[in-house]
Amino acid sequence: MQRTLLASLLLLMASGCAAGSDPCGDYDKVRRSLPRDAAALLDRGVNCNHFAGEFNGDRSARDQEINQVLTELRCDQVEREVAAIKRKYRADPAVLKAFRVYYDE
């Protein structure tokens, strides 16, 4: 399971950077500037959004793989945890901006 998740995350990072969709360098810089718990949750949320967008609903082997990754990432808990992080860091504009830019959009 861990290998699947790691391979999937590496693929996600490589594909996003190659496509020029992010400011990959900016994302890494922003993530490193956040408190550890906020950075970890931001990564999970971004990855959950990415993999949810790949889900086709056709019960294919790929959908099964995606479901496993979504389960490993605990994506069903992310919304609640994001709300808690936003409350915890409500006075930290960098945290709020990072979630707005990379997760909410």
Rank of each mutant, 00 (worst) to 15 (best):
R3Y: 10
P23K: 01
G20P: 05
M1K: 09
D58L: 14
V82W: 05
T71Y: 15
G16Q: 08
R31F: 11
D26G: 10
V78M: 11
P23L: 05
Q68D: 11
R62Y: 03
G25D: 12
V69K: 06
C24N: 01
L34A: 02
I85N: 01
R59I: 03
E81W: 04
A39R: 01
F55C: 01
G53E: 08
A61P: 01
V46S: 04
S15T: 15
K86I: 04
C24F: 06
N49Y: 14
G16L: 09
N67M: 08
A94G: 03
S60K: 04
C17K: 11
N67D: 09
L10W: 06
M1L: 12
Q64M: 14
P23M: 02
Y89R: 00
Q68P: 02
S21F: 02
D22N: 13
S8V: 00
D58V: 09
A98Y: 12
Y103S: 07
R100Q: 15
L70D: 04
L12W: 10
M1T: 13
S21V: 08
L6N: 07
R32A: 13
Q68S: 12
R74I: 04
M1W: 13
N49S: 11
A19F: 00
A52P: 01
R31A: 14
S21G: 03
V78G: 03
G20L: 05
T4F: 11
L42M: 13
R3M: 08
S60M: 05
E79T: 14
E65Y: 06
R62L: 12
K88D: 03
L96H: 01
G25W: 12
L5W: 11
A61F: 04
E72N: 14
A7D: 12
Y103H: 14
Q64L: 14
D28G: 12
R44I: 15
L70W: 08
L9S: 00
N47E: 02
I85C: 03
S15D: 11
V69Q: 06
F55A: 00
A39E: 07
D28M: 08
S21I: 05
G57I: 06
N67T: 10
L12N: 00
H50V: 00
A61T: 05
C48T: 06
T71N: 14
R62N: 12
G53S: 08
C24W: 12
A14C: 06
N67C: 09
